[in-house]
Design a protein around this nucleic acid. Structure first.
Ligand SMILES: NC(=O)c1ccc[n+]([C@@H]2O[C@H](COP(=O)([O-])OP(=O)(O)OC[C@H]3O[C@@H](n4cnc5c(N)ncnc54)[C@H](O)[C@@H]3O)[C@@H](O)[C@H]2O)c1
Ligand SMILES: NC(=O)c1ccc[n+]([C@@H]2O[C@H](COP(=O)([O-])OP(=O)(O)OC[C@H]3O[C@@H](n4cnc5c(N)ncnc54)[C@H](O)[C@@H]3O)[C@@H](O)[C@H]2O)c1
Lengths: 251, 251
DNA sequence: CCGATTTTGTTCTCACGTTCACAAGCTCCT
DNA sequence: AGGAGCTTGTGAACGTGAGAACAAAATCGG
C-alpha cells in the first residue's frame, strides 16, 4: 500500500483507505465483469482479460485494484471469486441495502418490476406515491403505499437509499421529506437540481442530458463546416419542461 | 476566443471549436436552468444566478460558457433568451433528431410514454421489439413494430440515435444491427459493455452502478471503523446477472 | 536449484478539469 | 463627462486522472 511518510504534500497520496471517485465508479463495472467470468467457469483472469471484459485499459484496471490491496498474484493474475468478493465487500454489496422508490408512474413501475436489484445487494422495501388512486395497486409481490407512511417505513426498515421518480415539480419537496426521515443517499430521475444538506449523497440519472450529449457529437459528425455561423435568434424549439426554478442553492 | 499562435504546445489550447467533454456534459444542465429562468419571466441573469440554478460553481460556469463565445455583458450578465438559443444551437437541439427505441419491455414502455423527449429536440420515430406478441401494441400514438423493420426505418427517417432497452443478452447483437443500419449514436440501458466501431458514440445509463456507488459512500458513513478487516471468502450475495461474457473488445 | 517467462504493483509523466483571483469592460449615477 | 460599482472572461495555480513503462515477485521447465 502507498506509504505517505517522508513525502511532503506530494502526490495524490490517498488518505488511508480513500479511494479516488473515478475508481469507485468503475468498481461496479469490474464486479459485473468478474461475475460474468465466474459464470463462464473461469477461475483466474489476468488484468488484460479483466480489462477487456470491463471495457477499460489494463493499466488503469491494475491501478484501480491496487487501491483495494494486493489481491493478485504476479505471473498468474487474479482469482476471480476472491477478487469478486473483495470488490463486493469494498463497495458494500455483501450486505443488503433497503431502498424506497417514490413516485410510481411510468418509470417507477419499470423500476418496481425490475428484478436486477434484489440480486445485487439492494432490497426494495416500499413503493410510495401520493396519488390515492395508485395506493393499494399490486406490482409483483409489492403494494403501492401512501407517501405519508414514509417516515414509519424508513425507521422500521432502516432505509438509507431513496429513489425519486416523481415529476420535477414535487421532487425537491420529496427529497426534503426523504432527508428529514433519515435517508442519506438519493438517486434522482427528475430533471431538477436537488439541494441536500452535507452528509447526504445524491446522484442523478438524466435521459435528456444523455441524449443531448449524443446530439452534440452527432452534430459534429455530420455538420462540420456546413453549419450556419452564429445566426440571430430565429424561431427555436420548445425546450420547456420545468414548472419553475425549483428550490434552493446547489452545493 | 483563445489565440493559439505564438504559444508552443502550451496550455489546453482548444483545437478550434473543440469543447472539453466535461463542459459538453454540463451544457444541457445550463440549458435547462436557462429555460426555467425564462419561464419565470427573468430576462437577464448573472453567472452567479445561473450557477446557483444549475448547481455548479460560477467560475466553472463562466469558463464553460467562454468556450462557446463571449455571449455575456460585463457588469450586467447574460441575456437569458439569447444564451439559451446559443447553447441549444451548440448542442444541436435546434433541429430534431430521430430516435428509435429497441426492446419495449418495462423500461421501453416507460420511455415510450415519456413526453419529455419531444419537447427537447428529439423525436421518437419507432418502437421496435423482436417479440411477436408485442408487435402491433399501441403506446400513446405509436405502435410497436418488428425489429426486422429496423433498416428500412433508419433509412426512411434518417435515424442517427438508437436507444437499447433489451436484456443484456441480445444487447450486443442489437447494437451491431443498429450500427450496420447506419445509427451512429447509441444510448444503452442494458448492463453490458458494448463494443462499437470508431465513429460511433455510445453512452450507458446503469441503475445498478449508480446504486452501488451510493452504497459505497453509505458504507463509509455508518461503518467507518466498525467493519471486518479483510475477512476470508464467506457466503456472499448472489451477484449474478450476465448470461456470459458478451462480445468483443471494448474501446 | 536457477534462469526464462509472465504478470502484477507502482512510479513517473502528461493531460485534463477545477478553482482562484483579477484586469478589462460595461452601466449608471452624479 | 468622469468615476464608482458590478460582472464577465481568462491567466495561472492546483488537483485529479490516465497511460507508459518498468522493477519486483511469482510460476514453470530444465
Ligand atoms: N418515463 C420516462 O421514461 C422518463 C424518462 C426520463 C426522465 N423521466 C423523469 O422521471 C420522472 C418520472 O417520470 P414518469 O414518466 O414516471 O412520470 P409519471 O407522471 O408517470 O409518474 C410520476 C408519479 O409521481 C407521483 N407523484 C407526484 N407527486 C408526488 C409526490 N409529491 N409524492 C409522491 N409521489 C408523487 C405521481 O402520482 C405519479 O404516479 C419525471 O421527473 C420524469 O421527468 C422519466
Ligand atoms: N426495468 C428497469 O427498471 C431496469 C433498470 C435497470 C436496468 N434495466 C435494464 O434495461 C433493460 C431492459 O429492462 P426491462 O425491465 O425493460 O426488460 P424486459 O425484459 O421487460 O424488456 C426487454 C424487451 O426486449 C425485447 N427483446 C429481447 N431481445 C430482443 C432482440 N434481440 N431484439 C429486440 N427486442 C428484444 C423483449 O421482447 C422485451 O420486450 C435490461 O437490460 C435491464 O437490465 C432495466
Amino acid at each position: 500500500m502507498t506509504r505517505a511518510s517522508s513525502r511532503r504534500p506530494g502526490p495524490p497520496t490517498r488518505t488511508e483507505r480513500g479511494i479516488p471517485e473515478a475508481t469507485v465508479a468503475r468498481l461496479p463495472v469490474y464486479l459485473r465483469a468478474l461475475t460474468a467470468l465466474s459464470d463462464s467457469g473461469i477461475a483466474t483472469a489476468s488484468s488484460e482479460d479483466l480489462a477487456t471484459a470491463a471495457g477499460v485499459n489494463s493499466a488503469k484496471l491494475r491501478k484501480d485494484l491496487s487501491y483495494l490491496g494486493s489481491y493478485g498474484t504476479r505471473g498468474v493474475g487474479y482469482d476471480v471469486e476472491y477478487l469478486r468478493y473483495q470488490i463486493a465487500r469494498e463497495i458494500g454489496v455483501t450486505q443488503d441495502w433497503a431502498v424506497v422508490i417514490v413516485g410510481i408512474g411510468n418509470l417507477g413501475h419499470a423500476l418496481a418490476n425490475y428484478s436486477g436489484f434484489g440480486t445485487r445487494g439492494f432490497r426494495i422495501v416500499a413503493l410510495l406515491d401520493a396519488d390515492p388512486n395508485l395506493v393499494g395497486e399490486r406490482i409483483g409481490d409489492m403494494e403501492v403505499r401512501d407517501f405519508a407512511e414514509l417516515e414509519a417505513i424508513v425507521k422500521a426498515d432502516r432505509v438509507s437509499i431513496g429513489v425519486i421518480t416523481t415529476p420535477a415539480g414535487p421532487a425537491q419537496e420529496v427529497c426534503d421529506r426523504l432527508v428529514a426521515a433519515g435517508v442519506t443517499s438519493i438517486l434522482n430521475f427528475a430533471p431538477v437540481v436537488l439541494s441536500v444538506p452535507d452528509g447526504v449523497d445524491i446522484r442523478k440519472v438524466d435521459l435528456s442530458i444523455e441524449l443531448q450529449i449524443l446530439a452534440y457529437h452527432e452534430q459534429r459528425k455530420s455538420g462540420e463546416a456546413a453549419l450556419p455561423q452564429v445566426p440571430e435568434l430565429p424561431a427555436m424549439n420548445g425546450l420547456t419542461d420545468l414548472p419553475s426554478v425549483g428550490g434552493g442553492v446547489g452545493a
